[in-house]
Computed example of a mutant assay.
Amino acid sequence: MSNNPPISGAGWEARLALTFTQQQHKTVLSQREQRGPLALQRPFYPEGGVCHGYILHPPGGVVGGDQLTIAVQVQPEAHALLTTPGATKFYRSAGLHAHQQQLFDINSGTLEWLPQESIYFPHTLSTISTDIHLQGNARFIGLEVHCLGRPASHERFDAGQVTISLRLHRDGKFLVMDKQRIHQLADLESSAGLRSNPVFATLIATPCNTETLEAVQNLCLNLADGLAGATLMREVLIVRYLGQHTATAHQLGRSIWALIRPQIIGKTATPPRIWST
């Protein structure tokens, strides 16, 4: 394990690489590589053998020039649930781009990726890219919530660039490729964009079936705030939310997670303790 200072004038270069392995009916963190300001808090076991972990970014926010990489490997039969203790904030930039790369390699195991929301300040230049590689009967549930500006403080995202991409593979074959670009006001305001909604969220889960889809679609109806819809592609459930409040996005996403977890993973939902603090 090493800790390197940031690149002079160019932000932090940080990497956190984790490997989870099943040992005697319990998932353990078998390998950890840490460079720069990314860390994993001591694992918790609130539901027996499933390893719950909290990823920490001590600087408290991402600035222009930061290059962050989170790489997770889940070995056969292992089961990890990862979240963050708070929102990730992407601050305004004077010209340098910030990039967070997420690499998930799940080999016949289970990964649940359930971070708190990402908040993008006006004038940020940020890119988040996620690559998920599933092998064999690997299972995955992921929920990400994104917020442009700070609606609660009446701060509008009136300038900046945000690019969010996701690629999902199983056994080397593409299942889903998704990209969201907010590079001008039209991307935020147009009917083909976000329709002036500052909050959007995506839930990805696999493997799923039509029965799961129908149950999730019922949860997407009659929301107090915003719109949501669900679809099924090649046993991959995709749920999208668009609205005004991160609380509603989390509430919907976690309700769906609680509904589908027993069907996909065979375990009832046990929320991370950090969500209650």
Rank of each mutant, 00 (worst) to 15 (best):
L221N: 02
V216W: 11
V176E: 09
R139V: 09
G86A: 15
G9V: 09
F157N: 01
P5D: 14
N137D: 15
L18R: 01
Q23S: 14
E112T: 07
I128C: 02
D105K: 01
L103Y: 06
L82G: 05
M177S: 13
L114K: 07
G266T: 02
L125D: 08
S2R: 15
G266A: 01
H146T: 02
L29H: 08
G243V: 13
Q116E: 15
L227T: 13
G36Y: 05
A269K: 02
R150L: 08
T69Y: 11
M233C: 06
N4V: 13
Q244S: 14
A215N: 08
P58G: 02
L237E: 09
R32Y: 09
P115S: 07
V63L: 08
A39F: 11
F157H: 05
A247N: 14
F121Q: 11
Y45G: 10
L29G: 07
V62T: 06
P122A: 02
V216R: 10
T212A: 06
D158Q: 04
K26D: 07
I55Y: 06
L81A: 07
L194N: 04
Q73E: 14
P262W: 04
A224N: 13
S153R: 15
T248F: 06
W113L: 02
H25W: 06
L188R: 00
I119P: 05
G48C: 12
P76D: 09
L125I: 14
Q41Y: 07
W257I: 03
L68P: 11
L111Q: 04
W257T: 04
E13A: 12
V62F: 03
P151E: 07
E214K: 08
S93L: 03
L237T: 09
W113F: 04
A94R: 04
T277P: 00
P115K: 06
S191M: 12
N222F: 05
K179W: 02
Q263N: 06
V28S: 05
G193D: 01
C208R: 05
A94V: 04
T246L: 07
A39E: 12
T270I: 10
A201Y: 11
Q22H: 13
I55P: 05
A258K: 04
I132V: 15
T84D: 03
S126P: 13
S196H: 12
F200K: 02
I70Y: 05
L111I: 07
Q100M: 14
L166N: 07
I204K: 01
A78V: 13
A228E: 02
A269G: 03
T19R: 15
